[in-house]
């Protein structure tokens, strides 16, 4: 707006001049308009120049409008409960969508997921077998906690089983990375292990109810 203020001032000045010319006919003679008319050929042609300038400005204004667009407030949407993710939603997104390329190369997201699964597997084995932490840890490391080789390989340590080649191929055929496949299998196996304990008649809160 401020940049256009001189234009408005100029416009007002020209308007004042026009009024002056209209009210005092003598003033008009002082401006050499006749020469301009002669140069253009006729007074009509001179008006056409004005009109053309105006039409040119139309293009400029329309262009600016197309670029600028409008501004308006975006009020909040209070109609619904402010959503929060479900427990485990991060895990689902990592397993479902994988991690980004940058994260794959430099991040520790995969190791965090693996560490978390390893810890949960240990805890669950402790709960199932009613054994100490060391024993459970050992069983997870060497992969004897489950029959599922993919799951065992995923959370197992260096001494544990290595993932079967067939699983890697199957995962690749389904369009998943080995990481996604392994993490999913490990999670399912941990959940299964946990449930098995309950069906074995273990003490669980739900049973007490």
């Amino acid at each position: 707006m401020r940049a256009r203020t001189p234009v408005v001032v100029l416009g007002v000045a020209v308007f004042a001049l026009a009024l002056g010319v209209l009210l005092t006919p003598g003033l008009g003679g002082a401006i050499p308009v006749a020469d301009a008319v002669d140069a253009a050929g006729s007074d009509y042609k001179l008006f056409v120049v004005f009109g053309a300038v105006a039409l040119l400005l139309v293009l400029v204004v329309v262009g600016l409008r197309a670029v600028g667009g409008q501004a308006q407030a975006t009020p909040p949407d209070p109609e619904h409960v402010r959503t929060a993710p479900a427990p485990g939603a991060e895990f689902d997104s990592v397993v479902g969508g994988g991690v980004g390329l940058r994260e794959q190369l430099f991040g520790d997201e995969r190791e965090r997921v693996r560490g978390r699964l390893r810890e949960t597997a240990t805890q669950t084995v402790m709960r199932r077998e009613n054994c100490g932490r060391e024993t459970a840890r050992e069983r997870v490391e060497n992969g004897t906690w489950t029959d599922d080789r993919d799951a065992a390989a995923f959370v197992g340590g260096e001494r544990g089983p290595s993932p079967p080649v067939s699983s890697r191929v199957t995962a690749a055929l389904r369009g998943r990375s080995w990481f996604q496949h392994g993490a999913r299998r490990a999670a399912e196996e941990i959940v299964g292990t946990s449930d098995r304990r309950v069906t074995d008649g273990g003490r669980r809160t739900e049973d007490d109810r």
Binding site: A86, G88, D92, T120, V191
Partner: peptide, 20 residues
């Protein structure tokens, strides 16, 4: 607040059981 609809949800439920 855990739900058992997804693998992640079931895993979270198991983790919670373990913590309890």
């Amino acid at each position: 607040v855990t739900n058992e609809e997804t693998v992640g949800g079931r895993l979270a439920a198991t983790e919670r059981e373990n913590r309890m």
